[in-house]
Design a protein around this nucleic acid. Structure first.
Lengths: 349, 349
DNA sequence: CTGAAAGCGCTTACAG
DNA sequence: CTGAAAGCGCTTACAG
C-alpha cells in the first residue's frame, strides 16, 4: 500500500508500475487536453489505479519550482505582528489577510527575521528575505515613503495597507475624509460654534486627510477651530488649552488620547456631552471594552486585509477577468455613540 | 544596483556578474568548509558584494527540493490562526512564537492554504506544503494523534504545543496536574466535603490530566465528587444536577462554561462563594475583562510558543551545547480570585 | 496518442 | 581551489 520506506513515491515510480513514461503520469494527473494531448481511457485508468494504490501525492515543492510561483504571500509588519500588552493593532488586519489567503490557496510568510532597529523592522537590510515570497503585503502605522519607492524601483511586487502618496504603489486604504466630514457636519447641526482638535502629527497620510476634511468643513461653516498636537504638547497641556479656549466640542484623532482626555474631563467635573462634546476621528479601541461609548467611526480593518491579499494576488498573476483597482479606498462606518450633544449653555471653565 | 526587471535573481545571474560559476555562488552562500572546500577570500567577497547589491535570496522552493534549510519555521494551526469574533485562542501562543523566531533569525510560514474540512485544517492533503518549511510547530486544541504519528513516521520534524501521548513526538506542554491538585487541596482545607466537576470530554490529554489530578486528590481526602460532561449534557442540565446534588463547590474545566454556570447561579439567587464556591481549572479568558474574578490558574502561553520554537530550532540544527528536553512541561500560576470560600452552612437548594 | 528531453533553481559529490 | 555534472520531482513544449 503506502511506501513505508525509501522516501516518497514519485511519478517515476508510478510510471514504472503502470508501464508508462513519467511524463504520461504527469499528463494524467493534470488532465491537460489543451494541445491535442489525449491519453486513451485505458492507460489513464491504469495510471490512476496505481496512483490510488500508492497514495501518491505530487510534491508541491517541485510543482512550485517549475511554476515559478511559490504561492507564498509575504507579510511585512513594521512592528510586531502579534499582539503584546500594549498593542493589537494588526490582528484585525491579519484576520482578513488569513481568510483571503486561505480562499486563494496561498500560504503566508511572516518576515519575523527582519532585524529591529529602534523597535521597528527594517525592510532593507543585509539579509532581506523579502524575495522568499512571490510578493508581499506591507503593514505599519508609519511607513517610510522613501523605502517604499526604493522597493517599488526594485521591481518587487507589493501592496501597502493604508493610502500612500507615492507614485506607482498599489494600496488598499481607508477613506478618512468622508466620515470626518460627516461628523463635522453633525457637530455643526448640533449647533456647536467653537471647536478644538487634539491631533497627532500631520506626517502620515491618514492624519492629513482627517485634518484637511475637518478644517475644511468647519471653516465652510464659519466655525472657530483651535488645534494642538498631543504628542508634542502633552495631554495635560492640551486639556488646559481646551478649557481655556472655551470650545464646546473636542475632536480627538487618537482613541487613546480621547480616553485620557475624557478622564481629565471627568476629574475636573466636566460632564460629557452636557458640558463638552467628544468626537473621536478613529477607531473605538477593542480593548477598552469597559470604556466610554464615544462618537467615532470605524474602519473595516478585516476587509482591508482581505482586499490587500486579493489585490496582490491579481498583481502577481497578471490581469484576468474583472480587474481590481490598484488603489482602493474603503469606507468607514460612523458610530453615533453618546458623546456628541448640543453645546452647553453654561461655561464649564 | 537593484535588478529592475526580468523576474527573480538567480545564482546563475550572480555568477555571471561575479565572474564565477554558479556552483561557487552556492558554495559561498552556504559557507561549506567540509571536505577541503575553500573559497579564497577575494572571490568570496566579490560574490557577496554582488549578492548584496542585487538583494538576492536563495529560492526556498529550489532549496527545499534538494533538502536544504531555509530558516523557515512552519506554523500549522488546526483552526484559524488569527482571531475572529469567537476565539483568539492562538494569539498569546503566536506572540511567543514570533518573538522566539525573531530572536533566532527565523521567518514564519503560516500554512493558511491547508484546506478546511469541517472547519478544521487537514495536515495531509493533496497539496500539503509542509515541506516548504524546515520544520513546523503544531497548534490546536485537539490534534489527531494518528495524524501526528503518521507525520512523525514521514520523517518530518515538528514540535507540538500541548502534551501528546504519542511516542517519539516532541512537545512543549503545560502541567495541568499540579495546579489542579493545589486548588483541590485549597478546597479541602476550606472544609468542602461535596464537590461537583463540570468537565469536557476526556479525549484530550489535558482534560485527562485535570480529571485524574482532581479525582485523585479529592478521593484521598474522602470527598464525594459528582461529574458531568458539559458538552454532552448541556449547561442547564449540569446546573440542575449541581443544585440537586447539594455540592458546596463546583469545579469547572472550561472558563466559558464557568461564566455561563455563574450566570445561571446568579439567576437563581445563589451567591458565590457564600452559597457555592467556583473553581475554574483553566485560563481566565482575556476577553471577559468585565467578568467574574474566578479562582483559577493560568498557563504561560506566550512562553509556551517561544519554547516550542527554540526546541524546534534545536531539533533542526542538531544538538549543540546544552540540550533542551524534547518533552517539556511548563508550570501554571494559581490565581486566587474571589470565588473559593468556605462551604455554606445553609443549603441553597 | 505517447515518449524523450529540457528546464525550474538549487546542493553536493566529483573531477580537474 | 574551482568548474562541470548530476540530480531533487515536477511541467511543458517538442518530436516521434
Amino acid at each position: 500500500m503506502t511506501s513505508s520506506q525509501g522516501g516518497r513515491v514519485t511519478q517515476r515510480k508510478i510510471a514504472e508500475l503502470a508501464g508508462v513514461s513519467q511524463a504520461t503520469v504527469s499528463l494524467v494527473l493534470n488532465g491537460r487536453t489543451d494541445n491535442g494531448v489525449r491519453i486513451p481511457e485505458e492507460t489513464r485508468k491504469r495510471v490512476l489505479d496505481v496512483i490510488k494504490a500508492t497514495t501518491y501525492v505530487a510534491d508541491p515543492v517541485a510543482r512550485s519550482l517549475v511554476g515559478g510561483m511559490n504561492n507564498l504571500v509575504g507579510v511585512f509588519t513594521y512592528e510586531h505582528a502579534f499582539p503584546n500588552e500594549t498593542s493589537d493593532f494588526y490582528t484585525p488586519l491579519l484576520t482578513g489577510v488569513e481568510s483571503a489567503a486561505e480562499a486563494l490557496g496561498l500560504d503566508l510568510l511572516m518576515f519575523t527575521s527582519a532585524p529591529l532597529v529602534d523597535g521597528r523592522r527594517r525592510i532593507f537590510h543585509e539579509n532581506s528575505r523579502l524575495r522568499l515570497a512571490d510578493g508581499c503585503i506591507l503593514l505599519g502605522r508609519k511607513m517610510d515613503n522613501g523605502e517604499l519607492a526604493k522597493l517599488r524601483d526594485s521591481g518587487y511586487k507589493f501592496v501597502a495597507i493604508g493610502r500612500r502618496d507615492v507614485e506607482g504603489i498599489a494600496y488598499v486604504g481607508v477613506d478618512y475624509g468622508t466620515p470626518t466630514r460627516e461628523l463635522a457636519r453633525q457637530a455643526i447641526e448640533a449647533g456647536h460654534s467653537a471647536a478644538f482638535y487634539a491631533r497627532l502629527s500631520l506626517a502620515g497620510e491618514s492624519s492629513r486627510d482627517r485634518h484637511d476634511a475637518l478644517t475644511d468643513e468647519l471653516a465652510a461653516a464659519g466655525i472657530a477651530l483651535t488645534q494642538a498636537e498631543t504628542t508634542a504638547v502633552g495631554l495635560a497641556e492640551v486639556w488646559r488649552r481646551v478649557r481655556a479656549g472655551g470650545a464646546t466640542i473636542l475632536f480627538v484623532e487618537d482613541p487613546k488620547d480621547a480616553e485620557e482626555l475624557y478622564a481629565l474631563a471627568a476629574a475636573d467635573g466636566v460632564a460629557v456631552p452636557d458640558d463638552l462634546s467628544f468626537v473621536v476621528l478613529g477607531e473605538r479601541d477593542r480593548k477598552g471594552g469597559c470604556g466610554v461609548d464615544f462618537t467615532c467611526f470605524s474602519a473595516p480593518r478585516t476587509e482591508l486585509g482581505a482586499r490587500a491579499v486579493a489585490l496582490l494576488d491579481q498583481i502577481l498573476k497578471g490581469v484576468q477577468g474583472p480587474t481590481l483597482s490598484t488603489r482602493q479606498l474603503l469606507e468607514c462606518t460612523v458610530l453615533p455613540g453618546r458623546t456628541l450633544g448640543v453645546p452647553s449653555v453654561r461655561s464649564y471653565r
